Amino acid sequence: MKIGIHHRKGSFSDRWIEYLEQKKMPYVILNAFDNDIIKQIKENKVTHFMWHFNQNYFEDMLHAKTLFRSVNQIGIKTFPNEDAYWHFDDKVAQKYLLEALDIPLVKADVFYHQKEAEKYIENTSFPKVFKLKGGAGSINVKLVKTKEQARKLVKKAFGSGFDAFDSWTVFTDTIERFRRQKTAHNFLRVIKWGFKGIFVDKQYKVFPKQRNYVYFQEFIPDLTYDIRLIVIGNKCFYLKRNTRDNDFRASGSGMLEFVPGKFNLEAVNIAFKAARKLNMFCVAYDFIFNAEDQPLVVEISYGFQPYVYDQCVGFYDTDLNWNEARVNLEFEIIESFLNEFSLTY
């Protein structure tokens, strides 16, 4: 066994390398963007290739899936695997996937022709949640309160389209976070992300415009939080994200709780069962709860922000029991991957 890792500082690979060093396991650092990357993988006799590719980097989204699929063809195991990466950062793809697997999700409607979208608007009720396919931290999420607002969005979707990066939302969200939590760290975030919000980082400018589809999701009123559950192997980790003031969005709020409170544990049961259906030993879910307290999946992802989850205080097991423990999700990922964890629960 020899592990190849594409390393980017600040990603999962920081701790993957630390894990391999501790275990004295053979590995090699590779640059996935090298023209001769396939030759390097073969010459180094790599058996497992790991890359925490990121939706915020256009080159990652352009290249990662192609490279993974290619090396899979010669028997090399990858993290993430194809079942985990093909729908990454694509809410539309996830809608169809979750529906196909009968995983309970928030109802969503997608249209690829303007006339059908306009007909839908006239025959549905509002508010609805409008989303683009991609984007983390709620940056491409809007609450649509009226039919007129929806018509304008549809016209733009089938006209000039939307920027893939909503710079104004990033700027205003950063200011709001600093207002709530006035720390030196958050001041630096205001400077960094406020700058990005006003002067859009060039990496975002290369993403193509989002056009010729619209995605409306059911709006569930009176929500004050959502729950992020991360299943890795036979453990389920918990994070509660509270909504912003006077806002329905929880993702990206920075208002986090790591000690589980009272909530419907069926969400944990769904998370484990869905992981098996999805064939993903590492999957992060965003859950909300409807008026009947039924857990519904909003979206899924193989990846998530590193280091944040160090603050988790334990995990649920497959019997839905809570276990207090120190948490290192990157170690959990590489250990499950290299031990070829079987989704048998």
Results as ranks from 00 to 15, higher is better:
163 D>L: 08
164 A>M: 05
167 S>E: 08
167 S>D: 05
168 W>A: 14
168 W>I: 08
168 W>E: 12
170 V>T: 03
170 V>H: 11
171 F>E: 10
171 F>H: 09
175 I>Y: 07
176 E>R: 15
176 E>F: 03
177 R>F: 11
189 R>A: 12
190 V>C: 14
190 V>R: 08
196 K>M: 09
197 G>N: 00
198 I>V: 04
200 V>F: 02
201 D>Q: 04
202 K>M: 05
203 Q>W: 01
204 Y>C: 10
206 V>Q: 14
209 K>I: 06
210 Q>M: 10
211 R>N: 15
213 Y>T: 15
214 V>M: 02
215 Y>Q: 11
215 Y>A: 15
216 F>N: 10
216 F>E: 08
219 F>I: 06
223 L>S: 04
224 T>D: 12
224 T>I: 00
228 R>H: 12
229 L>Q: 14
235 K>T: 01
236 C>R: 06
237 F>H: 11
239 L>P: 15
240 K>R: 07
240 K>Y: 00
244 R>L: 09
250 A>F: 02
252 G>C: 00
254 G>W: 01
255 M>P: 00
256 L>W: 15
258 F>I: 03
258 F>K: 10
259 V>G: 02
259 V>Y: 01
260 P>S: 10
265 L>F: 00
266 E>G: 09
268 V>N: 03
268 V>T: 01
268 V>C: 06
270 I>M: 07
273 K>Q: 15
